[in-house]
Design a protein around this nucleic acid. Structure first.
Length: 800
RNA sequence: GCCGAAGUGGUGGAAUGGCAGACGCGACGGACUCAAAAUCCGUUGAGGGCAACCUCGUGCGGGUUCAAGUCCCGCCUUCGGCACCA
């Protein structure tokens, strides 16, 4: 009898072996194919590692361990995305410096990750808060600034009143702060933006070149929100004065049905001409209420339309030359299109609602199957034929759009225009714990970029880093840091005091891993040449419209300035489903359903945790934690160990087809189907138990197959069996010939129902099968009408 | 409202259009034990029959096919994302 498996001792033993001997360190090696596997580096929070992290990291961990045995040179790095609000808020609350908090948290994460036995390249760890790292984050910002892709502008921004901080659109989805859940308010502020919109087209195109799950692509496409339409210029008459307002529409073909014009309450033409508007008081009130409403109600849809007629303004439809009324209404948004629309009530639900409320005429211009006085006809994909539209009558919608745009262009009243829902990226935060923005404000020269050789611009050590009520960065208080000299004119100047958002450091970290210690390059060209694209990147669905878009944007930019040679940073992307609590709810402290990986490791060991977390279900789907289910993985690991009692020198029965298992496990790991890979090995182990025998070679193969998932126990067994180290062995190969059995059992269907089975030789002819079935007597007293025989699969008899 | 994913035993979940329920949990039975745990070996979708077997079964309703969990059409429900985006 083998000694019972002491996971505490043995797991520690192998972890020491791996980490003390730098088993997973890699260097560029042209003699081997490379594999760059990446997981989203964690935010080192105070609460430590979560079982969700274990699932998220396990996929690439398993793939990496397998690829190494397959002879790949594997880069599987780890680091910490450590700037940001949670640490800063925690630091303020506990009166510790964020540097201290960060270092403590990183130390804790490192310890936990090592106790999980992950095969990270520990010599390449990056920490986004270290000056030698953020030097390059700042460097990239300077390149963006120099290419006019970073600009400062005063706008209404999403502002979190609780965190006292400006949020990017991506951080305030659903109108609440990503971090604290407080409802976001609109505030006018000086804001740094990165022109991600300039990259919208490249980000869309790039999706064709990458192996991402379809739903990620769709989600990114929707987020970018490309629409094709036209700008149409409407003359506006105020008394004798004539102004022009641009309207954006995706349906210029419906212009004959435009019976009113609506301006967003914030539209500048209202502000600029307020004294000429007869009912300006009413308008001003409405603007104010719209602004404050934006927080709550403007987010709600399908609410009652409101709006005010702008008295004294008239718009002229540039195609019909007819005068139409001008309104302001909060259903028109200033930050999309031009902030002004032409109202076509017959063919747009919102315009229809508005027209009904204000008694405006509804003119049908697309023939549909409804009475547009009763409901709008909003057929998708331009179904229908134009009516009541002299220039384009009788045309279908796509043709009508083409023709009317040409007409507008020749009249100089409109032109085609592509627009995107995605906004530019609000890039500054009034917070301490972030990368300082390396820009100097000079009274003479304006915004001056720092000299690159002066980077990094280090974050000064502050004792008081709490945010002030005036929404100024804590850095503003540090005058000896703020006051500086203009690099251009040498005069007195001040530093930008806002810092970068947390997403900055994570937008390029995958490049830093290739040459983490290089002081001369953002990424060393030789290292880049070797490692290139990330081959496989796993992460969470929640980052699809944040980190994944931002980092693709930065990489495209770095491509454009010649720093990298792949447009797309990630060749393949996969994502893990959430681990839910045992109650099926999302794990949260308040529900008390959080599972701490440390506790599980203490009770069952790392191999059991790793096996279970991958066995729990489809990798991409959410799965509830099961305190009972893990017992199954525990039993499996023990059974694997106890196979030592069944070892024989040789065994001629071949009732376990290990070749098929090798194929299945190899394929399944590549396809992220870890649950069925594990099931296949379990089945094999069960097979050896019922046979009561296992040979050394079989045992070695089983160990190798499950090694990527449970590396500790398999390292130990392998070492016991061979005296060697499993890391130095090869991934098992299968013999394709052995995948095909000599004889095969095929089901017999009669009228589509299974009535029996026959065992025949592989590739048996239809005749042979029919003869065998007849011998069974299943077809007695029946007349065969038709036989469907699918070789090696099934036979179906249609009988009378 | 729009976009996307999904609905299979008591339970987590498997199934290139070809034997539905692999593998695991739980439950039941047996071996071992003074006993229990652990371990090992069975049984386990529902209903019927002494039985060999039969009938019904993948959210609901239709359809295509020799054959449908899988494909098509129409619904229902749940979850995720976007949302007065012109």
């Amino acid at each position: 009898m083998a000694k019972s498996y002491d996971f505490k001792k043995i797991e520690k033993k192998w972890q020491n072996y791996w980490y003390n001997n730098s088993v997973f360190e890699v260097h560029e090696d042209l003699s081997k194919p490379k594999f760059y596997g990446l997981i989203e580096f964690p935010y080192p929070s105070g609460s430590g590692l979560h079982v969700g992290h274990v699932r998220a990291f396990s996929s690439i961990e398993v793939v990496s361990r397998k690829k190494r045995l397959e002879g790949f040179n594997v880069l599987f790095p780890i680091g910490y995305d450590a700037f940001g609000l949670p640490t800063e808020n925690y630091a303020i609350k506990t009166k510790q410096h964020p540097r201290l908090v960060t270092d403590k948290n990183i130390a804790n994460f490192t310890k936990q990750l090592k106790s999980l036995g992950f095969s990270f390249c520990w010599d390449r760890v990056v920490d986004t808060t270290q000056p030698d790292y953020y030097k390059w984050t700042q460097w990239i910002f300077l390149q963006l600034f120099k290419k006019n892709l970073a600009y400062k502008s005063t706008t209404l921004v999403n502002f979190c009143p609780s965190c006292n901080v400006v949020l990017a659109n991506e951080e305030s989805q659903q109108g609440v702060c990503d971090r604290c859940g407080t409802t976001v308010v609109q505030k006018e502020k000086d804001v740094w933006f990165l022109k991600i919109r300039d990259y919208a087209e490249k980000l869309l195109d790039g999706l064709n070149d990458v192996d991402f799950p379809e739903r990620i692509k769709v989600e990114q496409q929707n987020w970018i929100g490309k629409s094709t339409g036209a700008i149409v210029t409407f003359p506006i008459e105020i008394g004798k004065e004539k102004l022009y307002v641009d309207v954006y529409t995706t349906r210029p073909d419906t212009i004959y049905g435009a019976t009113f014009l609506v301006l967003a309450p914030e539209h500048p033409i209202l502000k600029e001409n307020i004294q000429k508007i007869q009912n300006f008081e009413e308008i001003t009130d409405y603007q104010e209420s719209a602004l404050s409403k934006k927080e709550f109600d403007r987010i709600q849809m399908n609410k009652e339309k409101t709006g005010i007629l702008v008295e004294g303004m008239k718009a002229i439809n540039p195609i019909t030359n007819q005068a139409i009324p001008v309104f302001t209404a909060d259903y028109v948004m200033m930050d999309y299109g031009t902030g002004a629309i032409m109202g076509v009530p017959a063919h747009d639900q919102r315009d229809w609602d508005f027209a009904k409320k204000f008694g405006l005429p509804i003119i049908e211009v697309i023939k549909g199957d409804v009475d547009v006085q009763e409901e709008p006809y909003c057929a998708k994909d331009g179904v229908g034929v134009l009516v009541n539209s002299p220039l384009i009558n009788g045309l279908n919608v796509p043709d009508a759009i083409k023709k009317i745009i040409l007409e507008m262009q020749s009249l100089k009243v409109g032109y085609p225009k592509v627009d995107y829902k995605m906004k530019d990226w609000a890039f500054n935060r009034q917070r301490y714990w972030g990368e300082p923005i390396p820009i100097i404000n000079c009274p003479k020269c304006g915004q001056v970029p720092m000299d690159e050789k002066d980077l990094p611009l280090e974050l000064p050590h502050l004792e008081d880093f709490s945010p002030s009520d005036d929404a100024l960065s804590p850095l503003a208080k540090c005058t000896e840091w703020v006051n500086t000299i203009c690099p251009k004119c040498g005069g007195k100047a001040t530093r930008e005091t806002d810092t970068m958002p947390q997403w900055a450091g994570s937008s390029w970290y995958f490049l830093r891993y290739m040459s983490p210690k290089d002081n001369n390059y953002v990424v060393n060209p030789n290292a880049y040449k070797y490692w290139g694209q990330v081959d496989w990147y796993n992460g969470g669905m929640e980052h699809v419209t944040r980190h994944l878009i931002y980092s693709r944007f930065w990489n495209h930019f770095l491509y454009d300035i010649g720093v990298v040679t792949h447009k797309e940073p990630y060749r393949r992307r996969s994502m893990q489903g959430l681990i839910l609590g045992a109650d099926g709810e999302k794990m949260s402290k308040s529900l008390g359903n959080v599972v701490n990986p440390d506790d599980v490791i203490k009770e069952f060991g790392t191999d059991v945790l790793r096996t279970f977390i991958l066995f729990i279900g489809d990798y991409e789907k959410p799965a509830p934690w099961s305190p009972d289910g893990i017992k199954g993985s525990d039993r499996f690991i023990k059974r694997l160990w106890n196979l030592q009692d069944y070892l024989v020198d040789n065994c001629d029965t071949s009732d376990v087809n290990l070749d098929a298992v090798i194929k299945k496990v190899s394929d399944d790991i590549e396809a992220c189907k870890f649950n069925t890979a594990i099931a296949a090995v379990m089945e094999a182990v069960n097979g050896f138990y019922s046979r009561g025998k296992i040979t050394i070679n079989e045992y070695i193969t089983v160990c190798k197959l499950i090694y990527p998932i449970a590396p500790h126990i398999t390292s130990e067994i392998y070492h016991i069996l061979t005296g060697e180290y499993i890391e130095k062995s090869d991934w098992p190969k299968f013999d394709p010939k052995k995948l095909i059995e000599d004889c095969i059992e095929i089901p017999i269907q009669i009228l589509g129902k299974v009535r029996g089975k026959v065992t025949v030789e592989v590739n048996a002819t239809e005749e042979e099968v029919i003869n065998q079935v007849k011998e069974l007597g299943l077809l007695d007293n029946k007349t065969i009408v038709k036989v469907i025989y699918v070789k090696n699969r099934i036979v179906n008899f249609i009988v009378k």
